[in-house]
């Protein structure tokens, strides 16, 4: 029997830092061509999870398959795009130099790279800032550069760790329009965010707390199930529920 190929499939994925468990026996399934939102308070383990999925952090136990391949895998690395929470762009280089560097490491050169860079700069609305030092840009602009760098090699799977922090609302909306456009072209997106209006636009949401996935479903289903009318309240309801269940278990 041929099993279904997920974009992301984790198998009791766990990460310990000393005695502390940042990600706890997590089983996550993300379909291809889906926007999956990870929501949870600071320290829930979202970033740690993403780092393991990008093979820059080694799991303590458990494993994961990305696009059907067991990671770490050399071929997978060129199919994913990772946008780190700390922006991951060189402040001492210009926007152009950053984008050229990130194209070169994917062997994207010459006219092809030039075309792609121009296209992305237009999308993130930074055409006028192309030759400016990143250090001189505002926080939101840095995030836009970072997003452009993430997309440069047209990845099949995107890991976006708080990509819209500090980006003004208008542009956030256009980001999301673009994400949906990417999804419609078959790109899978795993995204973390603090903005609830954005979370509603995800195809599915996973609530994370203390390294565990405490609930996951379509945004509307989660609201329905919890009987709340905002995702924030829904999260709190699930979190409380989870806590009482733990207490009872003890």
């Amino acid at each position: 029997m041929k099993t279904k190929e997920y974009a992301i499939l984790t198998d009791y994925l766990t990460k310990n830092y000393g005695d502390f468990t940042a990600v706890n026996n997590l089983n996550l399934k993300v379909d291809k061509g889906e926007i999956y939102g990870l929501l949870g308070p600071n320290g829930a383990g979202k970033t740690t999870l993403i780092k393991m999925l990008c093979s820059i952090s080694t799991p303590t136990s458990g494993g994961a398959r990305i696009l059907g391949k067991k990671i770490p895998d050399g071929d997978i690395a060129s199919k994913i795009g990772y946008m780190p929470q700390e922006t991951g762009v060189y402040f001492g280089l210009t926007v152009d130099q950053n984008m050229k560097f990130y194209s070169r490491i994917f062997n994207l050169q010459g006219e092809k790279a030039e075309k792609r860079i121009a296209e992305l700069l237009k999308f993130v609305d930074l055409e006028d800032w192309r030759y400016e030092m990143v250090d001189n840009l505002s926080g939101g602009m840095k995030h836009r550069v970072s997003l452009a760098c993430t997309l440069i090699h047209e990845p099949d799977l995107l890991f976006l760790d708080e990509p819209t922090v500090g980006v003004d609302p208008e542009l956030r909306v256009s980001f999301w329009d673009y994400f949906e456009q990417l999804r419609d072209n078959g790109v899978t997106i795993l995204i973390t965010t603090h903005y609830m209006d954005e979370a509603r636009r995800c195809d599915r949401i996973g609530f994370m707390q203390r390294g565990r996935l405490i609930a996951e479903d379509k945004p509307l289903k989660l609201l329905e199930e919890s009987g709340k009318d905002s995702l924030e309240d829904a999260f709190l309801a699930f979190a409380r529920n989870e806590d009482t269940m733990r207490m009872e278990a003890v």
């Binding site: 780092k51 990008c54 093979s55 820059i56 050399g74 690395a77 060129s78 994913i80 990772y82 946008m83 780190p84 929470q85 700390e86 922006t87 991951g88 762009v89 060189y90 402040f91 001492g92 990130y102 490491i105 994917f106 760098c149 993430t150 890991f159």
Partner: peptide
Amino acid sequence: VNERSSGTLERVLSSPV
């Protein structure tokens, strides 16, 4: 040290580099 603190090291290592 800047490469580590700005997230560029992680981005680069998540790529085929």
